[in-house]
Simulated assay, not measured.
Amino acid sequence: MKKIIFFHLLNDYSGSPKVLSQVIEAVSSKGADVELFLGGKGGDGFLSSVPCVQRRYFYKRFENKYLTLLSYSLSQLMLFFRLISYRKSSTVFYVNTLLPFGAALAGKLLGIKVFYHIHETSIRPKPLKLFLRWVVERCSSKNIFVSHFLADAERFPAVESRVIYNAIPQEMARIAAHHTYHAQPNDKFSVLMICSLKAYKGVGEFVKIASLAVHNKQIEFNLVLGASDSEVAEFFSGISRPENLTIVSRCEDVVPYYQKANVLLSLSKPKEWVETFGLTILEALSFGVPCIVPPVGGPVELVTDGKEGYLMDSSQVEDISARVEFLQKNPEVCFRLSAAAKLKSLSFSVDNFESSVLGVFNER
C-alpha cells in the first residue's frame, strides 16, 4: 500500500479525530507506511495513541476569534512550507476536514495526490468557507463524505467523490452487541447528551429540558462534554443547573453512559450548526438507545421519525421534555424503538467502514 500522510488540525474527543483514528488503524493494519501531522503542542484526544509516526505543527486557539483565525492561517502557512521537502512519489496526502488547507496546496504543488475526508458544512466566517472550497476544487483528487446529505450540500462536480458512513470502534461495537436495553418505570430513566461545549450544540436547550422535567424524580439527565473542568465552570457560571442534571467533563470512556441511557438527545441548532452525520447518535443506536435528533442533516439518515426515535427541532424544548416524560411512562414504546435502533446500527458496521476506506486507497 502507498505511503499515506494524514493531516488534522486539532486533536480532541470529537467526531472527526475519532473517525480519523479508525482510518489510520485500518490502513496501518494492512501494512501501510503512515505519518500524521497534527496541529498544536499536545492535549488528549482520539489521535493521541494512533499507531503511526506523529509530527506536530504550530496551532493555538485563543479566546479572541480574530487571534484564532490569525493563528490558524499562520499554522497552515507554516505547514505548507514544511511539506515542500516532500517529492512526488506514491505518497498520498489525506486531509481530514476542510481545515488543513496548507497540506492540500503543498500536495498540488508537488504533484502528490490529495484525498479529502469531509465532515463539516457549518464553517464561519463565510469567506473562509469559500476559500476552503476553492482549495478543494483545485487540489483534491478524491473526496470522502460522511453522509449523503453532506455530499449533496457540499458537492464538488469536478472531483471524484464517495460517501463512507462512519462506524463505531470495534471494541465499542462488541460491548454494544452484548448490551441489553432496560426501560423499567421503577428505575431512574436516564437522558443522555454527549457533545462538545458549544452553544450551537444545544447545551443550553438540554439544561432547559432538564429544568422542565425537574418535578419528575424518576428522570435524570447526564450531559457529557468534551471540555475541561475549567471550561465547563466558565461556561456555566451564572447559569442555574437543575438538581436532576449531572455534567461530566472530558470523558474518555463514554460506554458506561450509553449502557445506562434510556434515550439520547442530539440538540444541535440547524441555523447555526448542521450535523452532517452524528457519531454519538450511531453509538447510541448500537446500544439500542432511542434518539431524539434534529430533523435535518445527517441524523435523518440514521433515525426515522417514530421508528428508532424522533425528529425534533432543538428549539422545541417543551415538546422534547414532554416526549421524554412520555417515554419514561411508556416502557413498551422504548423497547419498540430500542429494537429498531439496534437493527439500524447494524447497517453501519466497522467491517463495511474499513473495507470502504481501504478501497479508496486501492483504486487506481
Rank of each mutant, 00 (worst) to 15 (best):
L99R: 07
L99T: 08
Y181Q: 12
Y165M: 06
L105P: 01
S338Y: 10
L225A: 05
S196K: 12
F235K: 08
L79D: 03
R82D: 14
S90A: 12
V203Y: 06
H215N: 10
L98K: 00
H179D: 09
H178E: 12
R133P: 00
H179S: 11
A173P: 08
R364H: 14
S228P: 07
Q54D: 03
I5T: 13
N222A: 03
K126F: 12
G204M: 10
Y181C: 05
C139M: 08
A210D: 07
Y59T: 01
I219Y: 00
S338E: 11
Q316E: 14
S16A: 15
V95Q: 01
D12P: 07
G306L: 07
S122M: 09
S141A: 13
Y257H: 13
T246Q: 14
L343H: 13
S122E: 12
L132S: 02
A339D: 13
E332H: 15
A210R: 04
E154T: 09
L197Y: 09
P125H: 12
K260H: 05
R56H: 15
S356L: 08
A183G: 13
Y59E: 01
E154V: 04
V289S: 04
E283Q: 12
T97E: 13
K2H: 10
A151W: 04
E308G: 06
Y72C: 04
R323I: 03
V163S: 07
C291M: 09
F287I: 06
V207F: 04
N166A: 08
L358S: 06
L36S: 03
A284F: 10
A158F: 06
C291Y: 05
M312Y: 07
T68F: 09
N222M: 10
K41M: 08
G297H: 06
E283R: 02
V254E: 09
S355P: 04
V95N: 04
L128Q: 09
A213I: 05
Y86R: 06
